[in-house]
Amino acid sequence: MAFFTPCWSAILVSLAVVGCAGSADPNPARIDAAAWHSASSSLDLTLALTFSPTMLAALDHGIPLTLDFRIDPAHGPRQHQRVSLRFLPLLRRYELDSGGNPAQSFASRLQLLSALDRLRLPVAAAQPVAGRVSFRLDTQALPAPLRLPALFDRDWHLQSAATAWTALP
């Protein structure tokens, strides 16, 4: 058993290294503004995000990219809203599915990314006066072979800081 003490230490150190690798700095992604739109019970977000070349290449190869928005109302349970970006090679069009409404279709990637600048997310909450919202690229939604590389490759890291919102009158 005495021999296993260094063994277990090595295992713990390895796990710590893996853990540190997984928590590398995210790519530039932020929420410039967030406001509650009571008429449509949705959250209007102004985003500033830059997808990495790897992400854009994956998108152009038909791999859907999913942004997971984490919404923490001041009162009430946490909610997740997913926004999916995908490319249809046959139609040569890009789709943006932000949930609730029919997917938006764009002729170019630039239009798609421009549409992400201002995003309206439906929120199933009764007049949340305030709260915090953040988003990240959901690497678990990627195809299986990409998930392990995505864990260690910084090109697949996209995560914003949490931004507070207040309800508009």
């Binding site: 090679p89 072979p145 392990l148």
Partner: peptide, 22 residues
């Protein structure tokens, strides 16, 4: 079907290295 196949093939082409690694 054509579109699905095109998407799958494009995805596989992109994941070529990752597939090998997996």
């Amino acid at each position: 079907i054509l579109e699905r196949t095109a998407v799958d093939y494009a995805q596989l082409r992109f994941q070529r290295r990752a597939l090998k690694l997996s």
